[in-house]
Amino acid sequence: MKRLGLLCLCLFQLSCISQNAEKINGVSFVGSREKVSQEHVDPILDVKANYAAVMPFGFARHLNSPNVVFDTERQWYGETRQGAKQYIALLRKNGVKVMLKPQIWIWRGEFTGDLIMKSEEDWKTLEESYSKFILTYAKLAEETKAEIYCIGTELEEFVKNRPQFWKDLIVKVKNIYNGKLTYAANWDEYSRAPFWMELDYIGVDAYFPLTPERHPTIEQLKSGWQRWKTKLKSLAEKYEKPILFTEFGYRSMDYTGKKPWLVDENEMDVNLKAQADATTAIFEEFWREDWFAGGFVWKWFIHHNRSGGSTDNRFTPQNKPAENVIQSFFNDY
């Protein structure tokens, strides 16, 4: 009987370790002009992802525009409510869990964190417009039983100037949606967000500057993480909430760790090794930590065979050495 009890205890402990080790291993599944089919989902399964972020979009004309336009016939299919629902259905059919993450795109790609109104009237209009946007997709999140719902992405000025609106919005979302909630704060914003206690994950778009080196080593990249990692852990402990990298990734180019947030069309030399090494460094630094929930690779296109590749210096890891790094770590965790 003693041996049986000891065996049960060991199995229980192994079970707990396994549960604690399991991470959110996600990809940011980019909306396209068309419906997704099984051939588009298979590469996600091949890379061993257990989550995908589905990202419908709303649009604003400029940084001072109070109107969020969404779910229109002019949008790509994957950016609409109907498209998001179809994407989620096929992902779930394949056993892939979902974070529904509606986002805003500002004309000409201006940074959403700088969205700010010029009058109280415009702030009120923005609040009403954004509420419709977020509550529409909260209903979809509940309808599709999405595991996580993200209430906003990189909206620092909006959050800073209207904190009560955001707290009220969270209450409204919780009246509709029963799953886990997060917000995707930019890497230089997350520590100031006022509502982490009301959410389930501290969401961070993890484009932290790590090193100014043109050809950084894994050791240099990991060293660059230390000051950020300490702050992230402290915040997780303060709020007793796990950190979730709502986006993480690197350009496959020289200086990949210098300003990882860059999305410009610069002609920096392709550097596939730097992307793979930076990806290795972030996995080795975070995926073993019990206060860290996991993250979503930025970004993954549905047409895998023609995405990324050896001449591409953009974010996607598809058909690059970084894809193999991701597959290896996703498989381990």
Rank of each mutant, 00 (worst) to 15 (best):
S234A: 15
K2F: 14
D264A: 05
A141E: 04
E22R: 10
G257A: 14
A60H: 05
I302M: 14
V159M: 07
W187F: 11
E189I: 02
Q226L: 13
S18C: 11
S223T: 08
K167F: 04
W196H: 13
K48G: 02
T279D: 04
C10S: 11
K222R: 14
S18N: 11
E219N: 03
V69D: 07
E265I: 02
T125C: 03
C10W: 13
V47S: 10
Q19S: 07
E323V: 11
Q13P: 00
D122K: 09
D200I: 00
E156D: 10
L199F: 11
S328E: 14
W105P: 00
D264K: 06
Y255N: 09
V96L: 04
F248R: 06
L14W: 13
S328V: 02
Q82N: 14
S310W: 08
I44P: 00
V159W: 15
I243K: 05
V263M: 06
W298Y: 15
E265D: 11
I202P: 02
T136Q: 06
V297M: 15
M197Q: 11
I202Y: 03
F133T: 01
A138E: 04
Y190M: 07
N305R: 13
M197I: 00
I44Q: 04
E267V: 03
W105Q: 10
S223Q: 13
I17K: 13
F283I: 04
K167Y: 03
W123N: 06
K139S: 14
E110S: 10
R108F: 13
K93L: 12
L90Y: 03
W225R: 00
L11D: 01
T72E: 12
H303F: 12
P242A: 10
R251L: 13
W225A: 05
D42G: 00
T256M: 05
T279Q: 09
F59H: 13
E285N: 09
A281S: 11
I24M: 08
E142W: 04
A146G: 02
I218R: 14
P102Y: 05
K180V: 07
N319F: 10
Q82C: 06
F248D: 04
F296T: 08
T230G: 03
A193M: 11
Q318V: 12
H303S: 10
Y201V: 01
D312V: 06
Y51H: 11
W166H: 12
E127A: 10
G249S: 06
A293K: 05
E156W: 11
N20C: 02
A53G: 10
F158H: 03
N271K: 01
G26W: 05
T316G: 07
K23S: 09
Y130C: 03
N319L: 09
G26N: 03
F12L: 14
S191C: 00
V297F: 07
E73T: 11
V297L: 13
Q164T: 14
A89Y: 07
Y201N: 01
T279L: 05
K238Y: 09
E147S: 08
D42C: 00
V69H: 07
A146L: 04
L221M: 12
G203F: 09
G152F: 14
A184H: 03
Y201K: 01
L9I: 15
K93F: 09
R92E: 15
V47T: 12
L45I: 14
P102M: 04
E247D: 12
K273A: 13
W298T: 02
V41R: 02
R314V: 09
